[in-house]
């Protein structure tokens, strides 16, 4: 298994690591049993623009790199634009991922969406975005158990 230079760069020098104490939305996906947990914090302006985004991730090189890239892709975007983020876009921006690591990009997409869901919830808006077609890590774990 070989990671692209871009993946290694985002793993070794992850962008936007940390927490936002007064975040407008926080989302956490994955679980330790699967070996990946991602937590996303977003700060949203009055105009609905994601002014700041930070992440914390427990996971492999690809998990850290996809989290980092996902934050780069949504920073400065509107909430609506951020909701259009797909795992495929994360993979493409990272110049590819090994097939067994694709689930990490799905998790990164879901982490962003979880933070946005929380942002809407705090503002009293119920939000239902369609769950990803790809199997996420947690569902993989459930399947393996059964």
């Amino acid at each position: 298994m070989v990671y692209s230079e871009k993946v290694m760069d985002h793993f070794m020098n992850p962008r936007n690591v940390g927490e936002i104490p007064d975040a407008d939305g926080v989302g956490m996906v994955g679980n330790a049993k699967c070996g990946d947990i991602m937590q996303m914090f977003i700060k949203v302006s009055d105009k609905g623009i994601i002014e700041d985004v930070k992440f914390k991730t427990f996971g492999c090189g690809a998990a850290i790199a996809t989290s980092s890239m996902a934050t780069e892709l949504v920073k400065g975007k509107t909430i609506e634009e951020a909701l259009k983020l797909t795992n495929a876009a994360v993979v493409e921006a990272l110049e590819g991922l090994p097939p067994v690591k694709i689930h990490c990009s799905v998790l990164a997409e879901e982490a962003i969406k979880a933070a946005i869901t929380d942002y809407y919830k705090r503002r009293g808006i119920e939000m239902n975005f369609a769950p990803s077609e790809h199997s996420c890590c947690e569902r993989d774990c459930e399947r393996r158990k059964n």
């Binding site: 298994m1 290694m8 793993f11 070794m12 699967c34 070996g35 990946d36 996971g59 492999c60 090189g61 690809a62 998990a63 067994v100 690591k101 689930h103 993989d140 393996r144």
Partner: peptide, 21 residues
Amino acid sequence: LWLDKMGISASTGSACSSKSL
């Protein structure tokens, strides 16, 4: 991966390093 960058070759039993997850 980090240890490798620091010049050390090691291995892990983590799922993320295997083909099976």
